[in-house]
């Protein structure tokens, strides 16, 4: 299991764009927004929480199809299914590796990108906290979506259509946590709900993902 985790990390780094691609995409989204809505602080500050969370979500989506697609193409997914590791564990470990290469760097870089959007000072701690608790759900839900569409030619678009609606609760509570933090309200409640979504996803979706993989490999 740890071997699989390590292998996925090495592959993400060697293939290029493991850590960098999602971060660069996040950066570009965040830089583009002021060009679109104008640079005035009064406009940017209220939308900053939502834009930061949307950017993180789209950056996460970008590398989802690689979770299983490459392993499917070169045949190693079939070999993993016949190997003495539980497929549920394979799905969970691959989601974890995806989070370490996308969600974790996004979380760490988010405060810097918050400055670009003139995020008020009260929001930074909540931004990091909500991303740290919310992005694992994005990776886990994404791994499930990738498992559903593995083996389909050009399954990437279909996967986005499947996965993005499932991201809605995470987006709502994540952005709401930051917004409440900015306004000085109690942000604990949406943060706890966000953590609940993440825990639920981590508990249920490895099994759903493994079932989807088994059907798709037939």
């Amino acid at each position: 299991m740890s071997g699989l985790f390590y292998r996925d990390l090495v592959l993400a780094i060697r293939a290029g764009g493991g850590f960098g691609l999602a971060l660069a995409f996040f950066l570009i989204v965040v830089v583009l927004v002021p060009f679109g809505v104008g640079p005035s602080a009064g406009v940017l500050a209220p939308i900053a929480p939502g834009v930061l969370w949307l950017g993180a979500l789209l950056a996460c989506l970008l590398s989802l199809d690689r979770i299983f697609a490459t392993d499917f193409e070169d045949g190693s997914l079939e070999l993993l299914v016949t190997a003495p590791v539980p497929l549920e564990g394979v799905v969970a470990v691959k989601a974890l590796a995806h989070w370490v290469t996308t969600g974790l760097p996004l979380t760490l870089a988010a405060p810097l990108f918050g400055v670009f959007l003139n995020l008020p000072s009260g929001g930074y701690i909540w931004l990091v906290a909500s991303l740290a608790l919310g992005t694992p759900a994005l990776s886990m839900i994404g791994a499930f979506g990738a498992a559903l569409t593995v083996g389909l030619k050009r399954g990437g678009l279909l996967m986005s259509l499947l996965v993005l609606p499932m991201y809605i609760p995470t987006l709502i509570f994540g952005a709401d946590t930051v917004r409440r933090g900015v306004e000085g309200l109690a942000a604990g409640t949406p943060l706890i709900l966000l953590a609940g979504i993440t825990l639920g996803a981590l508990a249920l979706l490895p099994f759903a993902g493994a079932a989807a993989l088994r059907v798709n490999l037939r």
Partner: peptide, 16 residues
């Protein structure tokens, strides 16, 4: 659990 399967593709990672 006794099976080792080798199909048409080798399951190799090209960058490893």
């Amino acid at each position: 659990e006794a099976v080792a399967y080798a199909g048409h593709s080798d399951g190799l990672k090209s960058t490893l």
